[in-house]
Amino acid sequence: MATSPAEPTLRDEAATAMTRLRTRSLTMRFEGLVALDAVDLEVRPGAIHGLIGPNGAGKTTLFNVVTGYHRPTSGTIELDGRRIDGLLRHEIAEAGVSRTFQNIRLFGAMNVIENVLVGRHSKIAVAGVELAGRMRPHSDHRALAAVRALPSAPRAMLHGLLEVAGAIAQPPRVRQTERAAIEHCAELLQFVGLVGREHELANNLSYGDQRRLELARALATDPALLLLDEPTAGMNPAESASVVRLVRRIRDELGVTVLLIEHAMSVVMGVCERITVLDYGRKIAEGTPAEIQGNAAVIEAYLGTSAAQGGGRAAPRA
C-alpha cells in the first residue's frame, strides 16, 4: 500500500523491549461468579497470540475487561507499560486497543464507509484549534462521575461548543482531516477486500463481508493491539482460510499485534505463535502451539473434548 494505514511501526520501535499487553492478577467477579481469577497475561509486540479455552472459560470477559466494558474487580492492565485499567472505553480505544465482537456488531443502518469512519472518529479535527487536556469523568458510579466532573464542566462545554462550531463552519483543517479519513478508510476497505461495497448498508452485507467490515472498522482506530473475538466463527473452510490470511497480513503489513479468541483448533494452531489457555477463569497453560498440544492439563480441560471437531476442519494455511 502506498500509505500505511497505521503507524504502528514507529510504536513498535519504541516498545520492542516492552510487552504490548500485560495483565497482572486480573480478576473479575460477577455476583459470586468468578469469571477471571488472577490472570497474568503477556502479549509481545508483533505477536499473533491465541486465547483458547472451553465455553465459559472467561475469554470474552477478558476482552471486555481489557477494553473497558467491565471494570476489573482487582488486578492491573498495561498497554506498552502504561496502565489502562480504569480508563473509559473511548480512552482505551484512543490508547491503542481495538476489538471485534463474537456476534458481529456493526452500525447496521449506516453504510460501509461510514462504519469505518466511526473508527476514525478521533483522527478528525474538532475545529481549527486543538485543546490541551481532556475531560475525564471517571468513577465507580456513573452518577458520581458526573458530580466529580463538575470542575471540568466549563472546559467540556467549550469543547462541545468548538465541536458544534467546527461542524457547522467546517474550517479547512476539519475538511482536510475528514477527507484524509475517508481516504484512509477506503484503503482499509481495500485491505480487507471490500472494494466496491463502500456505499452499501452494513446490514445488507453478507456474513463474511460483515466480519471483514468489522475488521476494517477496528483497524481504523490505528490500534497497537487488536482483539479478535472468534473471527472465523460461522465460516466455511474457504472463508475461514481467507480471514486467517487477513489476520496474518494485519500483523505483517500493518504491524498490529493481535490477540484472538478461537474455537477452531486448526486456526489457532496454524496462525498463533503463542497460546494462552483459560479454564474456569484461570490460566492453566501458556506456550507455543506445540507445547500446548502436548500439555496434559489442556488436553484434559479442553482438547480432550473438542479436538476431534476442530481437527475435522480444513487447515487454514495459506
Binding site: 472505553r89 473511548h90 461510514e114 458544534v164
Partner: peptide, 29 residues
Amino acid sequence: MRASRMGRAWEAIREDEDVAAGMGVNTVK
C-alpha cells in the same frame, strides 16, 4: 452537524452505543 464526525458519532450511538464507545467515541459527550 449531521455530516460531520459529530453526526456520525450520534448515529453510531443510536445503532450501538457500546460499540461506538469501543471505537473511540466519547458517548457521554
